[in-house]
Nucleic acid binder design. Structure first.
Lengths: 206, 206
DNA sequence: AATAAATCAAGAAAAAAATCACGATTTAAA
DNA sequence: TTTAAATCGTGATTTTTTTCTTGATTTATT
C-alpha cells in the first residue's frame, strides 16, 4: 500500500496527524495549509505538496477536511494494519513501554516481554507476561511475531540482536545507543534517546 | 562553541560516536571512513566531509584516530557542558527516564520530577524527589533550570507547556504526541515515540 | 453583481544534501 | 626500490528537498 514515502515526509505526516487529532477534538472541520505551515514553522507549499501525495484535494479559500486528512494519513501510515511485537529487556524503559497503552491505537500490539533476570521472569506487566529470553525463539515461531523492541543495556545490545536475528526477528526498534550490525534483510530503526537529546542541546543551548 | 551544525549532520555525529565507543572498548585505535560508511550504509565521502567539520584530519591509508574522533564529537555535541533539567510528568515514561543513569555521562542532569498527583508527590525516584507541579516556578528560579522534559498525557500537554513557559522554561524535550504551540524564544524538541514507530513501520512492514 | 482576499495547484527556481570522481599520500608487498 | 592497494581530501556533479511564483478558484464583502 505505501509507496516508499521518504522518511522526511513520513515524519511530517506524523506531525500533521497530531494536529488533525487536536483540531478534531476541538470540533474544527477544516484546516488550511498556511495554518499548518505556521504551526510547524515550514512553508505552506510544502504542506500542500505533502497532501498531494495523500491524494487529498483541498478546496480553494477553505482548505482541507480535517477528518479526511486524518483518515488518509492513518491509511498511509498503516494504523489499521495491526503489528505484533515483543519487548526484549524488561528494565525501566521496557516496562514503561509495556505500560504505554496508546501503542494499540496506532496499530502496535505488545504481546510479551523477555528478560534474562530470573527475578523478573513470570511477572505480569499491564497484562503482558515477562518470559525468560530462552523462550523467545519458540514464541516467535508460534505467534509469527517479527518485530522486537530492544531495550537491553548497550553492552548486550549486539549479542541480543544476534540472538533475535537467529530467532527470525526481521524488524528491530532499537532503544539502545549501540549501532547494530545486522544482515541486509533485517531492518533497524534507531531510537537513541541520548543522541536525540544531544541534537536538541546542540541547536543552541551550548 | 557549536557552529549551528545542521540537524542531519548532528544525527550522524551521534551515530559515529556510538561506533567510536564500541571501537574503543574493543581496543581498536584507528578507523577508516569506508569502514564507518559501510556500517551505516552511507557514502564514505560523506563521512569524511562530516569529519572535516570536526577539524579532525585523517591519515591516508590508515584512517582516523578513534580516541580523537570521540573527543571531538563530544566537544562538538557538548558532553562536558552540564545541563540541568526537570522531568514534568511522573508517569511510567517520566519515571523510566528518571532512572536512566546514562543521561549524566552525556551532560544531562535530572534534578527533580513534577506531577499533580498528590499520591506521587514527595516520593523519591533514583534519588530525585517528585514535587507538586505548583512548586515548579519557584524551583526554576532558584536553581536556574531552563530545560523541561515533558512526559504528561497528550491531553494536558499544551496546558502544562504554557505553564512551563510562564515559569521561564526555555527548552522543552517533548515526549507527548502533541505539537506544542510556543513563542519563538522557546525551543521544542519532539520525541514522539509513536510517530517514530510509524516511520519505521512505513518503511516496509506494510 | 462586482470586487477583494484567501487559498489551492503546479511548474520553476533555489538551496541543501548526497554521491561521484580523481589526484595526492601513505603503507605494505613484491 | 618499485609497485600496488587503501585511504584521505576536495572540487564537480547529481539528486533531493524546499521555497518561490503565478494563475485559477472559491468565498466573503461591498
Amino acid at each position: 500500500m505505501s509507496k516508499n514515502i521518504p522518511e522526511k515526509i513520513t515524519n511530517r505526516l506524523t506531525l500533521y496527524h497530531s494536529i488533525m487529532v487536536e483540531y478534531l477534538e476541538a470540533g474544527i472541520e477544516t484546516i488550511s495549509s498556511p495554518q499548518i505551515a505556521q504551526r510547524l514553522g515550514i512553508d505552506d507549499s510544502q504542506v500542500r505538496k505533502d497532501f498531494k501525495l495523500l491524494n487529498n484535494a483541498g478546496k480553494c479559500r477553505v482548505g482541507y477536511m480535517v477528518k479526511d486528512l486524518k483518515d488518509s494519513i492513518e491509511k498511509t501510515l498503516g494504523f489499521a494494519h495491526a503489528k505484533d511485537a515483543f519487548i526484549v529487556g524488561a528494565g525501566h524503559l521496557g516496562l514503561a513501554l509495556a505500560k504505554y497503552d496508546s501503542f494499540n491505537s496506532y496499530g502496535l500490539n505488545i504481546l510479551a516481554l523477555f528478560d534474562n533476570d530470573p527475578q523478573k521472569v513470570d511477572m505480569q506487566v499491564n497484562n503482558k507476561q515477562i518470559f525468560h529470553i530462552s523462550k523467545l525463539p519458540n514464541l516467535v515461531q508460534r505467534l509469527g511475531v517479527d518485530i522486537a523492541i530492544l531495550t537491553v543495556p548497550r553492552q548486550h545490545a549486539q549479542q541480543v540482536a544476534d540472538f533475535l536475528i537467529d530467532s527470525d526477528i526481521k524488524y528491530i526498534w532499537n532503544f539502545t545507543p549501540a549501532v547494530l550490525k545486522v544482515p541486509p534483510e533485517v531492518k533497524v530503526w534507531n531510537e537513541n534517546l541520548m543522541g536525540s537529546f544531544l541534537q536538541f542541546a546542540c541547536k543552541d543551548i551550548i
